[in-house]
């Protein structure tokens, strides 16, 4: 077990109000770690700290350290951190361009394309990895905004894969999707686990139990419990965890 991400004593604040309190948590390489918890438990704040998306918010401040492969992420350049730690949002928002351009956008900006002919390969591989290739291979040049919700979300996954990150953060990726599309996204997650490390924030407790290796339960800005998913769902140590996963509150 190699720790990919180490979080040490992390506290986060919005306008001086503490939303995440002295968090210590590790993410193991090639695992899916899901984070569950009721609203305002700090799980999204935690996720958005990992690739420093929160830094865009001027009311946000933090204490503590986060290490990615032993490098402190707060010392890294934001762009290179986000290249290594990709993020998928709750709402699938394709950029306003074609399917092809959506995927090639980031590799181009980041200067990852050395040869012009290489582009097609990147696009095809990314779409295949996101299990979208067969559905869109004949209309790569049509607008991405015309796809269905589930396809858009998988396009967003493909877009992240094209940059070849090490960690992918999923922020409630299926909250707007129907059960069939959800199943497809979950399927791609399980496949992606072979190559990437995944952190999944979800409101869907069942989803956490379906896909993740370990599950962390957050409540009111604190980590209550973290354990192997199989164990946490069968015999949680804390009363609050049990209440939440059995649907008694939250």
């Amino acid at each position: 077990m190699v720790n990919k991400i180490k979080v040490e004593n992390l506290s986060c604040y919005y306008n001086k109000k503490c939303v995440l309190e002295s968090l210590n948590i590790n993410v193991v390489q090639n695992e899916i770690l899901s984070v569950i918890g009721p609203a305002s438990s700090g799980k999204t704040t935690f996720l958005r700290t990992l690739n420093r998306m929160n830094d865009l918010d001027i009311t946000y401040s933090r204490k503590g350290d986060v290490y990615l492969d032993d490098n402190n992420i707060f010392d890294m350049k934001m762009e290179s951190l986000r290249k290594r730690v990709g993020m998928l949002f709750a709402m699938p928002i394709p950029l306003p361009m074609s399917i092809y351009e959506n995927i090639i956008y980031a590799p181009k900006r980041l200067g990852l394309i050395t040869r012009e002919s290489y582009q097609d390969t990147i696009v095809e591989q990314a779409l295949k990895d996101a299990s979208l290739w067969n559905e869109v291979k004949d209309r790569l040049n049509s607008s991405a905004t015309r796809m269905s919700g589930g396809q858009q979300q998988r396009l967003c996954i493909a877009r992240i894969l094209a940059v070849n990150p090490e960690v992918i953060l999923f922020d409630e990726p299926c909250s707007g999707l129907d059960p069939v599309s959800t199943a497809k996204v979950e399927e791609s997650m399980l496949e992606l686990k072979q190559k990437y490390t995944i952190v999944l924030v979800t409101n869907n407790v069942k989803q956490a139990s379906r896909v993740s290796d370990r599950t962390a339960f957050f409540l009111m800005g604190k980590l209550v419990e973290i354990d192997k998913t199989a164990r946490l769902f069968v015999s949680p140590k804390e009363k609050a965890t049990e209440d939440y996963i059995t649907g008694r509150f939250g």
Binding site: M53, F89, P96, Y105, R109
Partner: peptide, 19 residues
């Protein structure tokens, strides 16, 4: 979300604005 999406992919602020 467009801006957020582009930034999350590692684009710089100027790249996001321009493209």
């Amino acid at each position: 979300q467009y801006k957020e999406g582009a930034l999350a992919l590692g684009a710089t602020k100027w790249q996001t604005i321009r493209r």
